[in-house]
């Protein structure tokens, strides 16, 4: 009898906790939707994610060698965007291409966030010589032109999906580290940090319980902006012929533009080959950037004046 009440109480506690989270999320969603920039960004991201990852339902399975037809066909009712140099249907390739671009964008962003947040929090919180070295290192990597750097990294590590993700992350972490560091510097001076230090909290505890939760919203905004940059960088790498490739690998949008260029679609006037993938890259990059700026605006209302 007593046991059931404990279970019941625990259950109600869980439900209370959950409903609290749901309520918080609902409030956040309401603010998010009210911000026009963020809302447009979310709409774009959701649309392209659904198209890319719903590709099997939209255009059927990824084409195999058996499904090749004549190469370089112009748009027709059978092939809305014509066919590529191997004779694959370009619309199918285009719809699938987003998967690779988005996967690389998200994964690189996650790795860059972990790196950048760690460096930013560590340097900002501990200060002193640690901070000096980390901040100088951040500045140093920030100044290196990103395209030559990422090219050299990928070609040295030999191009494949994991190395491309790693290379993009190595190029993108410094800007996050800088933003997070300056946020940590202001959070660190707040009163509750001093109080918790006064009652004997250790630095590790303060970082975990107070610093990280307080910089997390900014990390999310930075993460979204980094996805935008990563998709962009991946497109450049692919255009250089350093994209993830192979007979079984899905071609990203950047790879499609690269192939169109290498196979002279430009001088032949085949705009349907290089036009749509480039447009998709642009719109997705813009979508993530809009959501990122929107989130920054929500978190820092002073920006809104701008």
């Amino acid at each position: 009898m007593g046991e059931t009440t404990v279970v019941g109480r625990r259950y109600s506690l869980l439900r209370e906790r959950l409903s609290h989270d749901i309520e918080r999320f609902r409030k956040f969603a309401a603010v998010l939707i009210k911000n026009r920039l963020a809302f447009a960004g979310i709409a774009i991201i959701v649309l392209f994610s659904v198209i890319s990852f719903g590709a099997p339902l939209l255009v059927g399975p990824y084409p195999t060698q058996l499904q090749r037809t004549d190469d370089n066909l112009p748009p027709s009712s059978a092939h809305w965007l014509g066919t590529d140099w191997e004779g694959f249907d370009l619309l199918t390739l285009l719809v699938y291409g987003g998967q690779i671009s988005l996967i690389i964008g998200f994964s690189a962003s996650i790795v860059a966030m972990v790196l950048g947040t760690a460096v930013g929090v560590f340097g900002g919180f501990y200060g002193g010589i640690t901070d000096l070295i980390l901040a100088r290192m951040t500045d140093f990597f920030l100044v290196i032109p990103w395209l030559p750097f990422v090219l050299v990294l990928v070609i040295i590590l030999t191009p494949s999906l994991p190395t491309i993700i790693l290379a993009i992350a190595i190029v993108s972490w410094p800007s996050t580290a800088r933003v997070i560091r300056s946020q940590v510097l202001t959070v660190k001076e707040r009163q509750f940090i001093e109080r918790s230090r006064a009652i004997g909290a250790r630095p590790g505890f303060i970082v975990r319980k107070h610093i990280i939760p307080n910089v997390m919203p900014l990390v999310w905004a930075e993460a979204v902006l980094t996805v935008s940059n990563s998709v962009f960088t991946e497109a450049f790498l692919s255009f250089f012929g350093l994209g993830a490739s192979g007979p079984d690998v899905i071609k990203s949008w950047g790879v499609l533009v690269n192939e169109s260029y290498v196979h002279l679609a430009l001088v032949q006037g085949h705009w349907w080959y290089f036009g749509p993938p480039g447009l998709f890259i642009t719109v997705v990059v813009l979508g993530f950037a809009m959501l990122g700026y929107g989130l920054e605006e929500i978190m820092n209302p002073a920006l809104k004046r701008r």
Binding site: V257, Y261, F274, G278, I281, L286
Partner: peptide, 29 residues
């Protein structure tokens, strides 16, 4: 300007060459 900023420069180059050098032959390819 933000839309222009989001466009990969290789793609903009392709579009410009396609429209102003290949289709309408004004500029050198």
């Amino acid at each position: 300007t933000l839309f222009g900023y989001s466009m990969p420069s290789f793609w903009v180059s392709l579009l410009l060459i396609f429209s102003l050098s290949v289709t309408i032959r004004i500029f050198p390819v």
